Simulated assay, not measured.
Amino acid sequence: MLNAIDAIRIFSGDFEETRDFFVNALGFVIGFEGEGVAVYDLAGTKLILEELDLSEPEAAGMVGRFTGISFAVDDIDTAYKDLKAKGVHFEGKPEREEWGGALAHFRDPANNVFTLVQYPQQN
């Protein structure tokens, strides 16, 4: 009944800065943009950036949180260096994990946390 995940929504109180970060630092292409919303099509899954008025009570806790969204990369060290050179703020260097892969967490201008993941090579 349910198919693949179609879209993931991310929230920001500074829409312009966060939109520009996704385009300029991460290289995402905007497929649709409207007032307070930008949609990036990432190989079949949409990442939707939505603007929130941070003075509204229901906005509390929706911005600046761990998203649980991971972006797979083939070479985490190279991706880390390239993104860091573009001004992406990482919480630390890539760390090798017990399961054989590696992770590195970074933040967007709204302080939302994302993850780079390099999976172990399959033989």
Rank of each mutant, 00 (worst) to 15 (best):
Glu56Tyr: 07
Ala85Asn: 09
Gly36Gln: 00
Thr78Tyr: 00
Glu58Tyr: 05
Asp74Lys: 10
Gly44Gln: 06
Leu52Met: 11
Ala43Glu: 13
Val88Trp: 01
His89Lys: 15
Lys81Ala: 15
Asp53Asn: 13
Ile69Cys: 10
Gly36Phe: 00
Leu47Asn: 07
Phe90Met: 05
His89Asp: 11
Ile48Asp: 03
Asp41Gln: 12
Gly64Leu: 05
Asp41Ala: 11
Asp41Trp: 03
Asp82Pro: 07
Glu91Val: 13
Ser55Ile: 12
Lys46Thr: 12
Val37Phe: 00
Ala79Leu: 02
Ala72Glu: 12
Tyr80Asn: 01
Ala38Gly: 13
Val88Phe: 00
Phe71Ala: 04
Glu50Tyr: 12
Gly87Trp: 02
Asp74Trp: 01
Glu91Ile: 13
Thr78Arg: 10
Asp82Ala: 09
Phe71Asp: 02
Ala59Gly: 11
Glu35Pro: 14
Leu42Trp: 04
Gly61Trp: 02
Lys81His: 12
Val88Thr: 08
Phe66Ile: 15
Gly64Arg: 09
Glu35Gln: 14
Ala38Leu: 11
Lys86Arg: 15
Glu50Lys: 15
Leu47Asp: 04
Asp75Arg: 06
Ala79Ser: 11
Pro57Met: 04
Phe71Arg: 05
Asp75Gln: 04
Gly68Asp: 01
Gly64Ala: 09
Ile69Ala: 08
His89Gln: 15
Tyr80Trp: 03
Val88Gly: 03
His89Tyr: 08
Leu54Tyr: 05
Thr67Asn: 11
Val73Asn: 02
Gly61Lys: 08
Glu58Ser: 12
Val63Leu: 01
Glu58Cys: 08
Glu50Asn: 14
Gly36Tyr: 01
Ala38Lys: 12
Ile48Trp: 02
Ile76Leu: 02
His89Ile: 15
Lys86Glu: 07
Lys81Phe: 06
Asp77Val: 07
Thr45His: 00
Leu49Trp: 05
Arg65Leu: 08
Ile48Gly: 04
Ala38Ile: 13
Ile48Arg: 09
Asp53Ser: 10
Ala79Tyr: 02
Val73His: 01
Leu52Cys: 09
Gly87Cys: 06
Tyr80Cys: 03
Leu52Val: 15
Leu52Tyr: 07
Phe71Lys: 05
Thr45Phe: 00
Gly64Thr: 10
Leu49Glu: 02
Met62Leu: 15
Ala59Glu: 06
Tyr40Glu: 01
Gly34Cys: 05
Ile48Lys: 08
Lys84Asp: 08
Tyr40Pro: 05
Leu49Ile: 14
Asp53Ile: 11
Ala43Tyr: 10
Lys93Cys: 09
Ile69Thr: 15
Gly87Val: 08
Lys86Thr: 11
Glu35Gly: 14
Gly64Asp: 03
Gly64Glu: 04
Thr78Asn: 04
Thr67Asp: 06
Ile69Arg: 09
Lys86Trp: 04
Gly44Leu: 06
Ala59Trp: 05
Gly68Pro: 07
Ala72Thr: 14
Gly44Ile: 08
Gly87Lys: 07
Glu56Trp: 07
Ile69His: 06
Val39Met: 11
Glu56Thr: 14
Met62His: 13
Gly92Gln: 10
Ala85Glu: 05
Glu58Leu: 10
Tyr40Thr: 07
Val73Trp: 00
Glu35Tyr: 09
Val63Asn: 01
Ala43Trp: 09
Arg65Tyr: 01
Tyr80Ser: 00
Ala59Met: 08
Glu56His: 14
Glu56Gly: 10
Ser55Arg: 14
Lys81Gln: 14
Ser70Gln: 15
Glu58Val: 12
Val73Pro: 02
Gly87Asp: 01
Ser55Pro: 13
